[in-house]
Design a protein around this nucleic acid. Structure first.
Lengths: 232, 232
DNA sequence: ACCTGAACACCGTTCAAGT
DNA sequence: ACCTGAACACCGTTCAAGT
């Protein structure tokens, strides 16, 4: 473990490990110092502050993405591949979306990815401002998805179930509450019931929503391209 | 200010005010106590803990949304209206997306909104699992957008500019770095330059991405509906 | 039933002092 | 150039004690 001196790379790598293992709240300068066998305050010399460390960590992991060969596979498969790649990345590094959406971290790692996204949608036929928007739209969807799948489920039903498990005498009350809600929101409760009957967990559902969303957005983009070429 | 006793509603309202004014990091139990003229620890009796308070606050603001009259306006305008409404909500309450994506807060306020979303996409013709996915896809996009527009911009360029402003002797170095990146990522830098020439700020750009994304997703959903009815 | 105050175990960050 | 230790100003939460 004895190292000559600390360096930025080493600190960023350790931070990523800590982030992956314990989540964003699991990273503290003190823990990081301990992991590296240094005083917590030694980090400040190398990375400035915690915010900057998070930005560096976020940018670093982008380089994990394998980019598609756009000319070889064509825009639609390439776009799909990029969307799934980002989803995988966010899945391996649950903290990533939270960081990039807090600080809009943009460095080399993300630039490399974005360059490929631009290549992809340029190949599709988008130009100028349209190109920027076409690049952004799928990315926004993926970001939204990554958040949702990373979050704890804490809906009314779950909380009611938890309450009634803790205090069995409240079970009747909890059931009554859920039923009242179901009566008030029939479509929502019908959907929840159907999901339960399909026996799907939250994770499977999220996968399906993602697949559906990806194709929907690709269809939508294709529709816009078609409309454009009709006009010309 | 003298009130008989504290109550949950009052605490949630005060929390929302604090969150709106100072952001998610601006809310602390101590500040909230001060605002309400009580000990910070008095909150715990009413709301349990901070996480639960955030969930209550998040659910509360959902009721601000005015729901469209789906049968009257038709599914596409209704869907668009819902998307813009959520965007407006997230804009007024910057902390909202962060909370719902951390805890997946789902209560009555959100149920009311979701019921209307189900009504909208049911009117469009989506059924069963398809209906769930159709409801989720636009919502994921809006969530992603809300995050991005809520985040601080902290890209390479901004950081380089900041550094060179702080330490003028580093300006040449910063410019060289940006140029090197531009050479490496030509499409990305071409887009950034074009954006600068259009004289657009980040906010305007975000608005345009949103408008484009909304129509793209609606087109994509319409395309799926068309494909479905062809098959039948 | 509702509230207080002290206390505990944490944070990020600064800064003088060391090597 | 790089690192330490003490210190500061915060956190969320628990809990005995009060009314």
């Amino acid at each position: 473990m004895a190292r000559e001196t600390l360096n930025r790379e080493q600190i960023v790598r350790a931070a990523i490990e800590l982030l992956d293992a314990e989540g964003i709240d699991g990273l503290s300068m003190r823990k990081l110092g301990q992991k590296l066998g240094s005083a917590a305050t030694a980090m400040y010399w190398h990375v400035g502050n915690k915010e900057n460390l998070l930005i560096l960590a976020a940018d670093e992991v982008w380089s994990e993405i394998t980019l598609p060969d756009v000319p070889a596979v064509g825009w639609r498969p390439a776009a799909r591949e990029l969307m799934y790649a980002v989803r995988g990345l966010c899945d391996r590094h649950r903290w990533l979306v939270r960081v990039i959406t807090t600080y809009y971290a943009a460095g080399e790692g993300m630039a490399r990815f974005q360059e490929c996204a631009y290549e992809t949608f340029d190949a599709a036929g988008f130009r100028d401002a349209d190109l920027d928007w076409a690049v952004s739209t799928p990315f926004m969807f993926v970001t939204g998805m990554a958040f949702m799948s990373g979050s704890e489920v804490a809906g009314i039903k779950e909380r009611a179930e938890q309450e009634s498990a803790e205090q069995p005498e409240k079970e009747a009350e909890a059931i009554a509450q859920i039923n009242a809600l179901a009566a008030k929101y029939p479509r929502l409760s019908a959907s929840m019931e159907a999901q339960a009957q399909r026996g799907q967990g939250f994770a499977e559902q999220v996968d399906e929503v993602f697949a559906f969303g990806v194709e929907t957005i690709l269809d939508g983009l294709a529709a816009r391209l078609a409309a454009r070429s009709d006009a010309v």
